[in-house]
């Protein structure tokens, strides 16, 4: 249904707007994701939709096309290991390295519907001694307004809250509202959400101690990955940490980061020569 020249156009458009790399054989995916938009915006066919994007007549439709092509799947405590690292390695080392009044800044750079930053907030509440009296700022950003709205609402269905999270934690940090489970205010107020496209400059973001950038680089081509990692390195403290998805790696994508030995998913800036402290014991994850 999408002709070859329109397909090429959509591929270039998406790459430019969100970094998404679509191979030549994703016609079905493109059609099935964009079909609902034809109905929603009353556009007769894909050619007309492509034409509207070409002449830039509607930024709303352009944003909707970009969002429709994103994959937003996420879950609480996804892959577990990074969250263990967070409490066992990252926070103790950063607390030891930072003066007591220092505010720790954490960035979830593809936060989707909020499960990842809320998991971090819950861990901070579960382990109050870890950061002492330091303030912690958790910033969740994403390209998609849809998921950001859901993240801010902090409401999840029964299925979402059962994956990755134990029932004790659910009862402690959520309340049931109708058929949904809502993150309690004490958790929600720890996380700020903001729209942000990773292709845009990171100026004005400040410096972070920890960056979670998980399961988003996989959609990008190698130069885009390399570029984003290099720019993350510039907003990350020299002794800070980068966390990628379980299926992602920094190997072959620039020189900015190297794996932290024995820690799946956790990376440190290559330039860093600071000594990192070993994990203390007895910390709840």
């Amino acid at each position: 249904m999408i002709n070859a020249s329109d397909y090429d156009f959509f591929v270039r458009f998406l790459k430019q707007k969100s970094g998404l790399q679509l191979s030549d054989d994703k016609h079905y995916l493109l059609e099935s994701r964009l079909m609902p938009l034809l109905r929603k915006f009353d556009v007769p066919d894909f050619s007309k939709l492509a034409a509207m994007l070409r002449d830039g007549s509607s930024t709303i439709i352009a944003a909707a096309v970009v969002e429709a092509m994103t994959t937003n799947e996420t879950l609480f405590f996804r892959d577990k290991a990074p969250f263990e690292d967070f409490t066992r390695t990252m926070l103790p080392a950063l607390s030891a390295a930072r003066p007591p009044g220092h505010r720790l800044r954490i960035w979830c750079a593809a936060a989707s519907s909020g499960q990842e930053p809320y998991s971090l907030a819950i861990l901070l509440l579960e382990n109050p001694g870890l950061v002492g009296r330091r303030e912690v700022e958790i910033l969740g950003t994403d390209l998609s307004n849809d998921v950001l709205d859901r993240a801010r609402a902090g409401r999840y269905n029964q299925f979402e809250v059962q994956r990755g999270m134990g029932v004790q934690m659910l009862m402690k940090y959520f309340t049931k509202v109708g058929d949904s489970w809502e993150v309690k205010e004490q958790v929600r107020k720890m996380v700020q959400f903001r729209k942000f496209n990773l292709l845009e400059p990171f100026s004005g973001m400040g410096t972070f101690d920890i960056v979670f950038c998980r399961n988003v680089l996989i959609y990008f081509d190698p130069p885009t990955k390399t570029d984003i990692l290099a720019r993350i390195a510039r907003v990350l403290a020299p002794d800070g940490y980068l966390v990628l998805g379980a299926a992602e790696t920094v190997i072959g994508v620039g020189e900015a980061f190297k794996p932290l030995p024995q820690h799946r998913c956790t990376y440190v800036p290559c330039a860093a020569s600071m000594e990192r402290r070993p994990s203390p014991f007895g910390i709840k994850v």
């Binding site: 029964q158 029932v167 004790q168 659910l170 009862m171 309340t175 049931k176």
Partner: peptide, 10 residues
């Protein structure tokens, strides 16, 4: 699936 039943079970 309400909180009171879950609490009772725990």
């Amino acid at each position: 699936n309400d909180m009171s039943h879950i609490a009772e079970a725990l």
